[in-house]
Simulated assay, not measured.
Amino acid sequence: MTEETQTYSFYVLLCHDGSFYGGYSPDVHARVAAHNAGKGAKYTKSRLPVQLLYHHEFTDQHDALSAEWHFKHQSRAKKEAFLRAHGVAWN
């Protein structure tokens, strides 16, 4: 019997208004569904629908939260550069 390792995802959404939203969740796909149902963050509720652009899984919760914090505290230009560096296109 193998023990499944818990993972934690840092994710980036593209909001309907063109803005980015960075978040964290142990279940990224359920969290995106919650955002699109209007049950996500206050920020995304008025910017629906949202689209998952990027996510990265971590085995350490702190690392996922740190990635989220760093993304949220960057300028728009740096967020765009981060996404491009990870092969993400959104236009």
Rank of each mutant, 00 (worst) to 15 (best):
T2Y: 14
E3G: 13
E3P: 11
E3L: 14
T5K: 15
Q6S: 11
Q6K: 13
T7P: 03
T7D: 04
T7I: 15
Y8M: 08
S9I: 02
S9C: 11
F10K: 00
Y11V: 02
Y11C: 02
V12M: 08
L13F: 06
D17N: 15
D17I: 12
G18E: 06
S19M: 12
F20C: 03
Y21A: 00
Y21S: 00
G22P: 11
G23F: 01
G23P: 01
Y24P: 03
Y24V: 07
P26I: 08
D27C: 04
D27P: 00
V28P: 06
H29L: 07
V32M: 02
V32R: 00
A33W: 01
A33Y: 01
A37Y: 00
A37R: 10
K39G: 04
K39H: 11
K39T: 02
G40E: 06
G40Q: 09
A41K: 08
K42Y: 12
Y43M: 05
R47A: 11
L48Q: 09
L48P: 10
L48I: 06
P49M: 07
P49V: 13
P49H: 14
P49I: 12
Q51R: 13
Q51N: 05
L52N: 03
Y54G: 03
Y54D: 00
Y54I: 04
H55W: 06
H55S: 12
H55K: 10
H56Y: 12
E57M: 05
F58Y: 11
T59Y: 11
T59W: 08
D60F: 11
D60N: 15
H62A: 14
D63Y: 06
D63H: 14
A64E: 02
L65N: 10
S66I: 03
A67H: 05
A67S: 07
E68S: 04
E68K: 14
F71Q: 01
F71L: 07
K72V: 10
Q74S: 09
Q74Y: 06
R76H: 14
K78G: 02
K79P: 01
E80A: 10
E80F: 00
E80G: 03
F82A: 03
F82P: 00
R84A: 15
R84M: 10
G87M: 14
A89G: 09
N91D: 15
N91T: 05
